[in-house]
Nucleic acid binder design. Structure first.
Length: 490
RNA sequence: GGCGCUAUGGUGUAACUGGUUAACACGUCGCCCUCUCAAGGCGAAGAGUUCGGGUUCGAGCCCCGAUAGCGCUACCA
C-alpha cells in the first residue's frame, strides 16, 4: 500500500508567447528536481485562454525545452482537451456548497470595480450572488441568463501553507475574493484548471514562479474543499533585468531560442540559469575555491529545493558570456561540429576542408571563441577559402609594400620547406627575417592577416600547421588581394 | 491604495544550529606572458551585510520599526 512515493512535478506554461527565460528556469528546476529524485516530470500546456494561445507558441516552447535538454516523461497534456474534468470539479464544489453561480456580467463587474476605486474602496467582488436562493437561481436560468461559477471563500480565518522555499506563508481569508472558477462560457479559469489538473495528475510538488504566491491560497482552499491532500509548494524567485524590474522585452532577448541564435551553447545557458536563484552551496575545486561550472549530470546530483533563494535575481549577460566561453572550450570538436554547421548554413559557408582537418582546426580556434557564431564569422578563413579581409587589420599590418613583397618571397621558402610543423615554420620565418634584416613581428603580424583575414588569431605557426602548407603558400602569394579588397570595397 | 514577499560589493551567491580581518565567481583595473587578441598566471579596488532601534559577552544571522524593490489585486495565466 505505502510504496515510496516518487515525486511528480510539472512545467505548465501557457502558450501565449515563446519560452522565455523565466519559464525556462522554472522548467529547469522542475526537471532537475524530478531527475534528482527519480520522479516524474510532466509537461502540461495551459491553453484555456483561447484568445491568446496558439499552436505555434506550443512548438516554440517545446523547441526551447529540447534545446535546453529538458525531456519530460508524460504529456504534453493540453488543458483545452480536458474541459470535462474542470466542469466535473466545479460541480463537486457546487454540490458541497463551496461554489455558486454568479449572474453578474463582465460589464457590471467592471463598472462596480471602477466605482469602488473612485470611492476609495477595495475593488472586490461584493458576493451579491452568493446569497441567491435556489429559486432565484432557477428563475435567472429560466430567463436565459448565463452564469459563471465562483468559489465561496471563507469570510474569516487564515489560509496558510508551508512553502518549501519561503517557509510559512499565510493570507487572511477576508483578503480573498470569491474568484471565478468557471467562466460563463463554461471555460475554466486558471484557478480551477490548475488544481483540478494538479490533483488529477497526482502532483506532489508544485515548483513555480513566486508571482504565484498570491494565488496559492485560492488553490489551497480548493484542495481543502475537495478534501485533498496539499502538495508541497515551492515558489521560485523571479528573474529581473539589469534595472531590477521584471525581465521583459525591453531588456533585450527574452526568449530562450534567441540565445540559441546568438550562438550560446545549451550547457552554458542551462548552467547559467541553474545558478540564478539557486545554489548548491559550496562546491570546491582542487584549489579550494567554489566551483560554478556544472554539467547536467552534476546539476542533477546537486539539486535540492533547499538551495533555492528567496530573493529575485538579476540576469547578467556578462556572466552568461563567461559560461558560454567556458563551455565552448570544454566541448570536444566532434560535439561542437554539428552546432557549428548550423552557423555555417546560416552564413552560407561551405567548408573547403577535409572533415579531419576541420576537427583539429576547431580545437585550435575554440580556445578563443565567445560564441558559436564566431565559427562562421571571424573564424571563417580557417574553414573556407572564400573569406574576406578585415579592413582595420590590413591597414594596421599590411600597409607596408616592402613587407608584402617579403611575405610573397616567404611563400617560396615555405613551398620548399619539408618540415611543416610549428617549430619548422617558425624557424623558417625567423631565419628569413634575420636574412632580410626585418623584425620577425612585422612578418608574423602581416602573415596572420594574409592567412586568416583577421588581426586576431591563435599563434601564427599553429595556424599555419592547421591550414596546411598549400594554403599557406597560396594565401601568402595572394597578399596583394588583401590590400586590393580593402582599397576598393565592393 | 490593500495584501504578500524580499533586502550581503556593480551582478550571482557563501558564511555550520549568533562566535576570528564577511568568502567565492562574473565584471572592472593593473602587472606578467607574447607574434596579435583572447585565454592563462599574479595582484588590486570594490560590501562592514538597506536604514534605525532592541536582545546578547558577542548579530549579516534573532526581535521591532522604517525605507526601497518586486509580486498579486481580471469571467489572463
Amino acid at each position: 500500500m505505502s510504496e515510496v512515493l516518487k515525486p511528480r512535478v510539472r512545467f505548465a506554461p501557457s502558450p501565449t508567447g515563446y519560452l522565455h527565460v523565466g519559464g525556462a528556469r522554472t522548467a529547469l528546476f522542475n526537471w532537475l528536481f524530478a531527475r534528482h529524485t527519480g520522479g516524474t516530470f510532466i509537461l502540461r500546456i495551459e491553453d484555456t485562454d483561447f484568445e491568446r494561445s496558439s499552436e505555434a507558441m506550443v512548438e516554440g516552447i517545446v523547441e526551447g525545452m529540447r534545446w535546453l535538454g529538458l525531456d519530460w516523461d508524460e504529456g504534453p497534456f493540453f488543458q483545452s482537451k480536458r474541459l470535462d474534468l474542470y466542469t466535473a470539479t466545479a460541480e463537486k464544489l457546487i454540490a458541497s456548497g463551496h461554489a455558486y453561480p454568479c449572474f453578474c456580467t463582465k460589464e457590471e463587474l467592471e463598472q462596480r470595480r471602477q466605482q469602488a476605486t473612485a470611492e476609495g474602496r477595495q475593488p472586490m467582488y461584493d458576493r451579491r450572488c452568493r446569497g441567491l436562493s435556489a429559486d432565484d437561481v432557477q428563475a435567472k436560468r429560466d430567463a436565459g441568463l448565463s452564469s459563471a461559477i465562483r468559489f465561496a471563500t471563507p469570510l474569516e480565518g487564515i489560509t496558510s501553507w508551508k512553502d518549501a522555499v519561503f517557509g510559512k506563508l499565510g493570507f487572511a481569508n477576508v483578503e480573498l475574493e470569491d474568484f471565478v472558477l468557471l467562466r460563463s462560457d463554461g471555460i475554466p479559469t486558471y484557478h480551477l484548471s490548475v488544481v483540478a489538473d494538479d490533483m488529477d495528475m497526482r502532483l506532489t510538488h508544485i515548483i513555480r514562479g513566486a508571482d504565484h504566491i498570491s494565488n496559492t491560497p485560492k488553490q489551497v482552499l480548493q484542495y481543502q474543499a475537495l478534501g485533498a491532500e496539499l502538495p508541497v509548494f515551492a515558489h521560485v524567485p523571479l528573474i529581473l533585468g539589469p534595472d531590477k524590474t521584471r525581465l521583459s522585452k525591453r531588456h533585450g532577448a527574452t526568449s530562450v531560442i534567441s540565445y540559441k541564435e546568438m550562438g550560446i551553447v545549451p550547457e552554458a545557458f542551462r548552467n547559467f540559469l541553474s545558478l540564478l536563484g539557486w545554489t548548491p552551496g559550496q562546491v570546491k575545486d582542487e584549489a579550494g575555491k567554489d566551483r560554478e561550472i556544472f554539467g547536467s549530470d552534476e546539476l542533477i546530483q546537486l539539486f535540492s529545493l533547499e538551495g533555492i533563494s528567496k530573493s529575485n535575481a538579476v540576469f547578467d549577460n556578462d556572466k552568461l558570456a563567461w559560461f558560454n566561453m567556458e563551455w565552448i572550450r570544454k566541448y570536444p570538436a566532434e560535439k561542437l561540429l554539428p552546432l557549428i554547421e548550423v552557423e555555417w548554413d546560416k552564413a552560407g559557408l561551405e567548408p573547403s576542408r577535409k572533415p579531419k582537418e576541420i576537427l583539429t582546426t576547431i580545437d585550435l580556434v575554440k580556445q578563443r571563441a565567445r560564441n558559436l557564431t564566431d565559427f562562421a564569422g571571424s573564424f571563417r578563413a580557417y574553414f573556407t577559402d572564400d573569406f574576406s579581409y578585415d579592413a582595420a587589420a590590413v591597414t594596421k599590418f599590411l600597409a607596408d609594400e616592402n613587407a608584402r613583397s617579403l611575405l610573397m618571397e616567404l611563400a617560396g621558402r615555405y613551398a620548399a620547406e619539408a618540415d611543416f610543423t610549428e617549430a619548422g615554420t617558425e624557424a623558417v620565418l625567423r631565419a628569413f627575417a634575420e636574412e632580410k634584416a626585418v623584425k620577425a613581428g612585422v612578418l608574423i603580424n602581416g602573415a596572420r592577416v594574409a592567412l586568416t583575414g583577421q588581426g586576431v588569431a591563435p599563434s601564427l605557426f599553429a595556424v599555419m600547421v592547421a591550414l596546411g602548407k598549400d594554403r599557406v603558400v597560396t594565401r601568402l602569394l595572394a597578399v596583394e588581394n588583401a590590400v586590393a579588397s580593402v582599397a576598393s570595397p565592393s
